[in-house]
Amino acid sequence: MGLGVTWRVVAGSAAGTSHSATGLDCQDSCWAQVDTPAGKTAVLSIFVADGAGSAKHGGEGAELAIKAAAEFMQKKAALPEFGLGDDFAVDCVMGIRAVLFSAAEKAKVRAREFACTFLGIVSTNLGTLIMQIGDGGIVVDIGNGLEVPIAPMSGEYANMTHFITDEDAVDRLESHAFSKPVLKAAAFSDGIQRLALQMDTNTAHEPFFAPFFKVLSTATAEQEDQLQDALMRFLNSEAVNERTDDDKTLALAVLI
């Protein structure tokens, strides 16, 4: 696969019914983009962050995390070449932590008040890297069907997880590299987790993903503009809200 490799992407976040009912904004944030620097291969990046409900600035933390990851990615994409491995994941997380700790210092609060989870997928024609701190999930197809290479992380107790602002965040960071571009990819916050995964076996729930990937891979240029609206309608649908009252984020990509 040469310079022509590229992806079609769509991503969205929607407030959960528990937040809407109390007038709270959505505390999830996401990013899905394909960068094509002049004369270079395309770079896919997907990032998802879920602000901690117990953190005063959790939603802002999630937004800042996504912005920092996107800026880190754009700097990398501008380089002649870069490797997709553990070092990349650690550098990305350290960059995000620096932004969150700086925001906390400015607000005169502990970094914990900007706590959020963080999930990332980066892919080029040479390979793919996934990385994760906290719950939510990443599903990829590298050529062997849908797989969940990193088990969603829960903390010591139910409804507990790990956050990028935690002291041991870099130790908790899980990353997984592949030597091929990703054919299909999805990242989602824990609001979607029970719909998207078979939790007992930690496998992808194929019927959940099949319609999304089909639409993404077959969409015409005209339909492409409507993908975002269709995803938001799904995230706000009764069928989804009956299953979860949490904020919901889903970001998807298909190699085209």
Rank of each mutant, 00 (worst) to 15 (best):
A219D: 08
G2I: 08
T220E: 09
K106F: 11
L250H: 04
C116F: 05
G127D: 05
L195T: 05
L146C: 00
E147P: 00
T128C: 10
G4W: 10
Q33R: 14
V34Q: 10
M199G: 01
Q223R: 11
F178G: 00
A115N: 09
S154F: 13
E238R: 12
D25E: 14
V240Q: 04
G53L: 04
M1D: 12
V9C: 12
K76I: 02
G53Q: 06
P37L: 05
A78N: 11
M73A: 13
K56E: 15
I192E: 07
L119F: 02
N144V: 03
K248A: 12
H162S: 12
C30G: 02
F88D: 02
F178R: 00
R172M: 13
A78Y: 04
Q74I: 03
Q228K: 14
G4S: 15
V90Q: 12
L235N: 04
A253F: 07
D86N: 12
L24E: 14
A68Q: 06
A239C: 03
D245M: 10
G4A: 14
G143D: 01
M73D: 14
L3R: 13
L235A: 04
F101D: 14
C92E: 11
A62W: 07
L227I: 02
L197F: 05
V34M: 11
D91C: 09
L250Y: 06
G12V: 03
R172V: 15
D25K: 13
C26P: 07
R110G: 15
T128S: 08
M199W: 09
F114M: 06
K248T: 10
G83P: 01
V215Y: 07
A65M: 04
Q198Y: 12
G39K: 06
Q193Y: 07
Q228C: 08
F213D: 01
A78M: 04
F208E: 05
V215R: 15
F178I: 05
V170C: 11
E174P: 00
N144C: 08
N125E: 14
D86G: 11
S179C: 09
T218R: 08
L197N: 01
I256R: 14
V139G: 00
A62D: 10
E224F: 07
A103Q: 10
D28M: 08
S18Q: 13
V254K: 01
S154W: 12
L119V: 02
G23A: 09
L79W: 04
G155Y: 11
C26I: 09
K108P: 00
W31M: 11
D50N: 09
G155A: 06
T161Y: 09
L129F: 10
D86T: 13
K184E: 10
G39L: 07
D141P: 01
V148D: 00
I256E: 15
T41D: 15
T117L: 05
V48E: 12
K180L: 13
D91V: 03
T36S: 14
L197C: 08
L252P: 04
I150Q: 09
T220A: 05
V5A: 12
S123Q: 02
G191Y: 05
G12I: 03
G61A: 08
A89F: 05
F178Q: 01
A210T: 15
Q33K: 14
P181C: 06
A11S: 15
K214N: 12
Q33V: 13
K248G: 01
S179N: 15
S217E: 15
A103I: 04
S237Q: 03
N202P: 00
S54Y: 09
E63I: 12
G51A: 08
V139L: 00
A210I: 11
L129V: 09
E81M: 11
G85N: 15
V215A: 14
G23Y: 06
